[in-house]
Design a binder for these strands. Structure first.
Lengths: 98, 98
DNA sequence: AAAATCAATCGTAAATTTGCGATAAGAAAT
DNA sequence: ATTTCTTATCGCAAATTTACGATTGATTTT
């Protein structure tokens, strides 16, 4: 194997997405967002048996990797899947598994 | 969302696979195994700038989640992709991304 | 039988992750 | 202006992950 820069970049990108998916709660949040189109932090706090701060932290991670985005609807925040990055992640995983 | 037992089981399984993929080295090891069909621990130690014990640890994680399997070829061990579980992981990710 | 080879495991340190309660920050409603 | 509502952030503890060198165990070669 060559392990050139392109390969390493691709590998890191995939590992980053995988890391974001590496927790059941974050998987469930994304599934929820897929079904509901969008939702507020509070909705998730009602669904999952976790503290509000914990949910917020998971949302932060998903936002950091770009899988979701938050839209200000004061005083709430509406979270949605970031379709562009979602597609990128999908493609990376598809390619990885052939 | 229902969050029934089936859903939770599926979610945990996917998160587990994701966790195994959540490190660039493990992604690269799997890619390497895909290309080479199979290989020995020592081959990987030559490819990656990591200690032998570290590579061994990553292999252990991949084995734990079932993505690879080791066949004894004394004094070496030949590692291969576990095709059955690979397919399962592939399907889980495919379903997840629709 | 002794030395060499290969890979797993142990022990340990540093970094990261996960979870919580408490607090802060922002806008809306009173 | 004060209170209320919603969510982010801080500070902290516990658990997990990552990496390494050293050691061990098993097998092969000498």
């Amino acid at each position: 194997m060559k392990r050139d820069l392109e390969t390493i970049k691709y590998t890191k990108a995939l590992a980053n997405f995988a890391k974001a998916l590496a927790h059941p709660t974050r998987i469930a949040i994304l599934k929820h967002l897929e079904n509901q189109t969008c939702c507020f932090t509070g909705d998730l706090v009602d669904v999952f048996p976790l503290a509000q701060s914990t949910i917020s932290q998971h949302l932060k991670e998903l936002k950091k990797v770009g899988l979701i985005q938050g839209e200000l609807k004061p005083p709430k925040i509406k979270y949605c899947i970031n379709q562009k990055n979602w597609k990128i992640a999908k493609t990376l995983f598809q390619d990885f598994f052939n």
